[in-house]
Computed example of a mutant assay.
Amino acid sequence: MLGSLRTALFALTLACSGSTANAADFDKGLAAAQAGDFATALQEWRPLAEQGDADAQTSLGWMYRNGVGVLKDDAEAVRWYRLAAEQGYAGAQYILGFMYSNSEGVLEDNAEAVRWYRLAAEQGYADAQFNLGVMYRKGDGVLKDDAEAVRWYRLAAEQSNADAQSNLGFMHSNGEGVLKDDAEAVRWYRLAAEQGNAGAQSNLGFMYTKGEGVRKDDAEAVRWYRLAAEQGYADAQYNLAVMYRKGEGVLKDAALAHMWLNISSANGKEAAGELRDFIEKNMTREQIAEATQLARSCMESNYQDCG
């Protein structure tokens, strides 16, 4: 499964590019915001933003987009992000692209999103490079071009962007925009998986299950499926259930197989519900009740108590 557009988040600790002409005033606002005093942050940043300071403009955009210290107003957020973006501020360009992709404060316009992503991506902004790759992969705002998607994924992946690493692994695994190369797919999946990317963890588990790009190892497959499953990733939950059902890489356990299928189904995996109902035919009412309670405890504990 491919990752979709990376959500635009603005970290206050990364807001300042060092270009502000009034660094002391900006930093005063930043310190206030980090302390939760957004009224003072607004008081410090608005005059700077009105004077054309890109850091302050981007910070105001963040406040309006998230409704922090001000009423949430996506259109006003777009206005401030645009002012910073037009000065070449990569972070603002990236977020402005995301807002065009997702119709936040502006009408959805994928071509405009691509334009802003590209401006940020060409400055080396990894999240923009990833999102631009997604646009090329889907053909949103540009002609579909898997090779170009791979190019942008790779640039972001080489900056340790986990989503890009995961998607690059998928492209190598499926021979899309690049020669099929399972070993290379495993390499990129592993880099993303080790950063906690659930999709990559699930796909890496699948590569171990099939012995593609690595020596077949069911126990290692189970390990990666479990890490993704405990993040709520439905495909991994399904695959982990199959391993429990078959006793591959783990002791055979119908109750845990039922538990993970039930959870996967609840998280939207249609095939999981079908398989759960099938295996119930060979379970007693008491066993089904026990497995259902296991599933309930697992989900209610946010995957901390899963049998």
Rank of each mutant, 00 (worst) to 15 (best):
R46A: 04
A183L: 07
A289Y: 02
I288F: 01
D182M: 12
Q287S: 05
L179S: 03
S166D: 12
E76K: 13
L48R: 09
K180G: 03
M1A: 13
L5P: 00
A162K: 08
G124L: 11
W260Y: 12
A272T: 12
A164W: 04
E50H: 00
L5H: 05
Y225A: 10
N167T: 06
E270C: 01
N110Q: 14
A147G: 04
E86V: 00
K28N: 15
G52R: 05
Q195V: 13
Y64M: 12
G36M: 13
F130M: 03
A75W: 02
A84R: 03
S297N: 15
L256N: 10
D25I: 13
A11W: 05
H258I: 11
N167D: 15
M299Y: 06
L2C: 05
D53T: 04
M1K: 09
M259L: 15
D235F: 06
A33W: 09
S297A: 12
Q237N: 01
M259R: 14
A54D: 12
D235G: 02
T7C: 03
D109F: 00
L96P: 01
S59T: 02
A192T: 08
E220W: 03
D55G: 01
H258F: 15
R226F: 07
Q304M: 06
K252I: 11
G67F: 01
K210S: 13
W62I: 06
G199D: 14
Q201H: 10
G124Q: 06
M1F: 08
Q57F: 09
S160L: 15
G211H: 15
Y81G: 01
E290T: 08
A23F: 00
F10S: 14
K138R: 13
Q93W: 03
D217C: 06
E176Q: 15
G124R: 12
V134N: 06
Y238V: 06
V150L: 09
G268W: 11
N197D: 14
L179Y: 00
Q34C: 04
A254I: 15
L179I: 08
